[in-house]
């Protein structure tokens, strides 16, 4: 077992930054969803590692990760449903083209 948990925090930070940069940079709604999944995964690594290295309880951290994964699945289902619906109405999935709510 690696003694220093900060290595894993660094890995999670790196993954989060990659996901965040992808989210900012991308125009496609599907690619934004991919970036969000990467960011959620970095949060999951933090949950699992902090649960192992601190005294809050190994099982509690695992439950937090399971809840996070289930939430991500729900979010992906709704997100992809919205993307499909928008594609049928507008014929595109570019996020910059969705301006109906802009006013």
């Amino acid at each position: 077992m690696i003694a220093d948990a900060s290595i894993f925090v660094g890995i999670a930070l790196l993954l989060f930054l990659i996901g965040f940069a992808g989210f900012i940079k991308s125009k496609s709604a599907i690619r934004m969803l991919i970036a969000v999944e990467i960011m959620l995964n970095s949060a999951n690594i933090n949950f699992a590692i902090f649960a192992l290295y601190n005294d809050i309880g190994f099982v509690t951290g695992q439950i937090a990760v399971i809840i996070s994964i289930a939430l991500a699945a729900a979010e992906a289902a709704v997100g992809l449903g919205i993307i499909l619906s928008v594609y049928r109405n507008h014929g595109t999935v570019e996020a910059t083209d969705f301006q109906a709510l802009k006013g």
């Binding site: 496609s28 599907i30 999944e37 994964i69 991500a72 992906a76 992809l80 993307i83 499909l84 594609y87």
Partner: peptide, 20 residues
């Protein structure tokens, strides 16, 4: 994740036409 969500995404891309 690797088996469920990504396959859902692949379906959405396939249904969104070639420009997606």
């Amino acid at each position: 994740y690797a088996g469920g969500i990504t396959i859902l995404m692949l379906f959405a891309i396939s249904l969104s036409g070639k420009e997606a």
